[in-house]
């Protein structure tokens, strides 16, 4: 801050009262500069932060319910995979309906239906079902799960992600509806994305 006294400058100090005046004026102007400078910075910074952070919260897809199959079409004890078809919106682009994910549905002997997201909680590969071993198996890093979704072995931090199901009767037929959702992978908690 003392730099204004650089030797290059004309000497303001020839008359001492003039010097006091000049110093006061300079102080005042310094204040002005910092006030105006912060105003300038604010005009830029506020919109900048708003802009940046609002683009971070993209993809806030609300969970949606999909009608997948008739209850009677499910074979008890044999999990079946269903593809979720929906429109996908990516920022400004809206894609026509297409596969956005898949779920495993299984019906127990007493008719209760469970649904699992087929996304592996380890790093997000698609989980297969091995009928012979009666277990779910992720081919990427060999995670295995029990038919009820619990961990058997492998690197995954949690069991398969169960999804909410409901049964709806439409014109006499019972239909299975699933609330499809995506979850954060690689962590022990089941934490929904979006």
């Amino acid at each position: 801050m003392q730099s204004v006294h650089s030797g290059l400058l004309i000497d303001h100090c020839r008359f001492s009262d003039l010097k006091v005046l000049t110093m006061r004026r300079r102080k005042f102007l310094k204040h002005c500069t910092s006030i105006l400078g912060s105003l300038y910075a604010t005009i830029l910074a506020v919109p900048a932060l708003g802009f940046l952070f609002s683009t971070l919260k993209r993809g806030n897809q609300t969970d949606r319910t999909y009608r997948l199959t008739r209850l009677n079409d499910l074979e008890p004890g044999v999990p079946q995979r269903f593809t979720i078809i929906d429109q996908r919106v990516d920022a400004w682009t809206k894609y026509p309906p297409g596969p956005i994910g898949s779920v495993w549905l299984s019906k127990s002997k007493d008719g209760a239906v469970t649904a699992f997201s087929s996304t592996c909680p380890h790093l997000g590969c698609v989980i297969d079902y091995v009928a012979g071993d009666e277990e779910y198996f992720c081919p990427c890093h060999a995670a295995t799960f029990q038919p009820d979704g619990a961990m058997v072995s492998g690197p995954q931090p949690r069991g398969m992600d169960e999804l909410k199901t409901t049964i709806e009767t439409i014109r006499g037929d019972q239909w299975v509806k699933v609330e499809y959702q995506k979850f954060e992978t690689g962590i022990a908690e089941k934490y929904p994305i979006g």
Partner: peptide
């Protein structure tokens, strides 16, 4: 000197 005389005016 430019600072603070000119900076204030410029701002």
């Amino acid at each position: 000197p430019y600072w603070p005389y000119q900076t204030t005016r410029t701002l």
